[in-house]
Amino acid sequence: MVLLGHPTAGATHHPGPSRRTLSLAFASAAAVLLAACWLVIQQYNERPPWAQDISYEAGFIQGNRIRHYDPTGRQAKDLLAGGCERFRAEGRGGLKATYDPGLWVAGCLDGAAGRQLEKQGLFH
C-alpha cells in the first residue's frame, strides 16, 4: 500500500527473465511438443502403440465371455472348431480385431478353451 507523502520503502525490483525471453521459451517448448505429437501421429496413425496386446486381449475376452455364458458348452466347442475365425471374418470382433487378426483369433481360442491369459498384469 502506498501512502501519500511517505517514501516507498521496501518496494524492490526482483530481476528475472524478460517477457521476450519467456515468450520465446514458451513458443519453442510449444513447437517441440507439437513436433513430437506430429511424429507420434505419423508413426501410429489410427493404430494404438500396443495394438498387438490390445488385439489378443480383446479376442481373449470375447472367447472367455462366450465360454462363461454358454450353459451347454455348444458355443464354446463351436468357437474352438473355427468359430473364432468366422467371428473375425464376419467383422464381429470389432475394430480391435483388425489391429492384428491372427492374435485376435489366438486370444479368442485361448479364452474359449479356458486357458490363462498369456501376458497378464503390469509386468509380463
Score class of each variant (00 low, 15 high):
1 M>R: 11
2 V>D: 10
3 L>R: 12
3 L>W: 07
4 L>W: 11
5 G>W: 03
6 H>P: 01
6 H>D: 06
14 H>C: 03
15 P>L: 06
18 S>D: 03
22 L>S: 02
23 S>M: 08
24 L>E: 07
24 L>D: 00
24 L>C: 08
26 F>I: 09
26 F>K: 10
26 F>Y: 07
27 A>F: 12
27 A>M: 09
31 A>H: 07
33 L>T: 11
35 A>Q: 01
37 C>H: 13
38 W>C: 15
38 W>H: 05
39 L>R: 11
40 V>H: 10
40 V>G: 04
40 V>M: 11
41 I>F: 14
42 Q>E: 11
42 Q>A: 14
43 Q>P: 00
44 Y>I: 03
45 N>F: 08
46 E>C: 06
47 R>K: 14
48 P>D: 06
49 P>I: 09
49 P>Y: 10
53 D>C: 08
55 S>Y: 01
56 Y>F: 13
57 E>S: 06
60 F>E: 04
64 N>V: 00
65 R>L: 13
66 I>F: 02
71 P>H: 10
74 R>A: 15
74 R>F: 14
80 L>H: 05
82 G>T: 10
86 R>W: 01
90 E>I: 07
91 G>M: 04
92 R>T: 02
93 G>L: 09
95 L>G: 11
99 Y>W: 15
101 P>E: 09
101 P>Q: 08
102 G>W: 03
102 G>Y: 05
102 G>V: 07
102 G>T: 13
103 L>G: 03
104 W>T: 02
105 V>A: 03
107 G>K: 04
107 G>E: 04
109 L>G: 04
109 L>M: 10
109 L>P: 01
111 G>L: 06
111 G>Y: 02
111 G>C: 05
112 A>M: 07
112 A>I: 05
112 A>L: 01
117 L>G: 04
117 L>Q: 12
118 E>Y: 12
120 Q>H: 13
123 F>I: 13
123 F>S: 12
124 H>G: 15
